[in-house]
Structure formats: C-alpha cells, structure tokens
Design a protein around this nucleic acid. Sequence first.
DNA 1: GCCAACGGCAACGTTGACGTTGGTAACGGC
DNA 2: GCCGTTACCAACGTCAACGTTGCCGTTGGC
Lengths: 198, 198
Amino acid sequence: MVRDVEQTKRRLREAALAEFAEHGLHGTTVERIASRAGVNKERLYSYFGDKTALFTSIVVEEVDKVTAAVPLVATSLDDVAEFAGRTFDYNQDHPDLTRLVLWEGLADTGVVHDAANRGPHYEDKVAVMAAAQRAGLVADTPAAPHLVFLLLALAGWWSATPQIARLFAGADTDPESERAARRAAVVEAARRMAAPRP
Amino acid sequence: MVRDVEQTKRRLREAALAEFAEHGLHGTTVERIASRAGVNKERLYSYFGDKTALFTSIVVEEVDKVTAAVPLVATSLDDVAEFAGRTFDYNQDHPDLTRLVLWEGLADTGVVHDAANRGPHYEDKVAVMAAAQRAGLVADTPAAPHLVFLLLALAGWWSATPQIARLFAGADTDPESERAARRAAVVEAARRMAAPRP
DNA sequence: GCCAACGGCAACGTTGACGTTGGTAACGGC
DNA sequence: GCCGTTACCAACGTCAACGTTGCCGTTGGC
C-alpha cells in the first residue's frame, strides 16, 4: 500500500459525504465510512477527531460549494428567474449537498456552523437583489432577503419532500419530462414572483 | 397505577411524536420515548411492534393531520394567497409535524407510506386549484399540481432550513416581527405567483 | 369468590457502534 | 544503512440501545 495522506483524507471525506447525505449523522456508522473509503477507521479519528467533527467539517465545506456554485446576477428579470432554475438544477444534480443542508436544518442547534464564512455568500445575493430592486428590474416587495430566500424555496422544496412531490406527480410519469416540467414551473413562478408591477 | 390501555398508547404516541420530530428515527431511543411517556418500554414493543413500525405509524397519522388541517378553498386569488399564509402559520405552530415530514423525506425509500390515504388530500387541492384556473381566478400556468406544490414550498422552506433563514435575517432581529414579515412575504409571493395575467 | 387472561415492569442477553491501543512496516533525515 | 517518526491496521474494551423474558398484581367473566 502506497502512502498518501492527502488521498486518504480525500477518500474519507468523499465516503463521509455520501454516507452522511444518505443516512444523516446518527444513521451513519464510522465503520461504513471507513470501509467505503477502503481505509481503517482509526485514520478517521486521527485525522478528524470524531464522527461529529467530521460531519460538521463536511457540511461546512460542501455547503460552501453550493452557495458559491450558483451565483446570482441580476441584470434583468430573466436573470432572476434563471437563478431559480439553475438552483433547481443544482439541487437535482447534487442531491447529496441538498440533503446535507436538510440534515443540518433538522439537527439545528440554534448556532450555524461557520456562519462567518457562509453569511457573506447570502449577503452578496441579497445585495445583488436589492440593487435590482432599486433599478426597477425587480418588484420592491417582498424585501430582498425574503425574496432571495423564497427563490431558494421554489428550487429546493422538491428535494426536501420528494415523497410529496411524487404524490403530486402521480405514479407513472416520465421522470425526464417531469423534471423539465418542474424546472419550467420553478422558473415561471420565480419570474412572476419577482416581476415589477407594470 | 390505574390501568388504561388507550391512555398508555396515547402517551406513548405523544412521546414518540416529540422524540421522533426532535431526533429522527435513528437519533431517537426507545428508552427515551418510554421514559418521557412514563411507561415501561416493553409496552411500546407489545403495542407497536418495534421502533420503526411506531415511527411510520406516527408519520402516517400526523401527516394526515397536516394535510387535512389547512384546506384549500379557491373562490378568489386572495384565498390562494391566504392558503400559503395559513400553511406557513401551521408549519410555524406545529414544528413537530413539519419536521416529521422532512425526516420522512430524507429517509425516502421510494415508497410513500400510506399513499392511498394521503394521495387524495393532495388530489383535492389540485382539483380545487385547477377549477380556479378554469374560472380565470388564477393564472393557468404553472399547471395546478406544480402550483400547489410551490405554494407549499413558500410556506415550508423556512422550517426546512432554519439555519439558512437565520443567516438571511441577520443576527439580531425581533422574532415576533420577523415572523410576521416572513408571513407577509409568503402571502405576497403566493399572490404574485398565482395572479392571472390582467 | 375463583381463576384465567392481560397490563405492566425490572432485569437481562445480545448486538453493534464508538473510540483506543499496541504493533508493523514504510518513509526520510543523516 | 541506521533510526526516529509517521501512516496504517487488526483487534480490543466499553457502553448504549434494541428487543425479550419471567414475574407480579389487577381485571373481569362465571
């Protein structure tokens, strides 16, 4: 076995992401993470402390990616609508990350891990939205923070309650076209929500 | 100790609801449910089988309540907007139920428990919305199922990602007025989303 | 009033998961 | 080529949680 500390860490992180996203903090076992990574579990303790520390570390890193991956540019109403659409795409394509955020929300302790780091991502988006409102590109109510948050809601709720989404869709729908229809609904809803009064 | 089977069952169910909502299936211990109910844990096994069976039984019962509690009546656009507002209120006032649905979504196995029972609740809402669309009270796109689902998204995302909501709100906001502002944002967003083109 | 059935409980066996430890072999400085 | 250091692992101790069992006292039919 060739020694490669960075690779070992990376494999552990990848395995941990997959397991935590699937089962949450309590549902995941250290044993399974290690075996999925093809590494002895003692490595996990030596590198990351314990299971909980690894969990928060993964959450912080991955949530960072999500918030950075889909920037909000608002030079037109279409941009705002497409932001919701691209966030929807991101959620669908990266179910692990979405699920992590939900697990984090359910485990919510009242303190946000790494708020100093994550806050600015959202503040940026709010600032962009507020500017678009001042420019008259976007309706001026709801207020920018609520508006951005509600765009995320439109894009994310499908992943949060897939069992409900399925009840709405009915049993036998083509997944491909249903996804496209959902995306279109999200984009249109976002557009209507943000459209300035004529 | 007076014997009362129904009361014992009820106490167990209540305790289980609280614990499951708080910690999810894996995070909850049978011991804690029993001790919170003031009952021996053997009763739980004798009445409900095992922990998982109790969990799904609770979910089925409680989710039923949520879907029935806030009916959708759509005789005007205001009704539709207020439906989102009342669903928001319900989510805020019954965090246990909302959290249960989210736990269920994360544990999603691809089969919805008790779909035969829960499906109709949603079908009703979709039918009402479709009628409102035909009557011209509500925009005819997005399609009724997507529209209803997105209303639920506006109302529910706050509970699903409280940690993110907090980042948007900023640190020191009065909870009371923030909640009112959120509700107003939800109602207005719902109204804009559903408003027919003039 | 008797007795079978049932609700209730304390104590137990067992499993599985966390986190640790002692040992082995590779690496790197000299 | 020697040796301290470091990555790595198999095996272990420990504990908490699941689910069970054997016993007791109450209930209700007769």
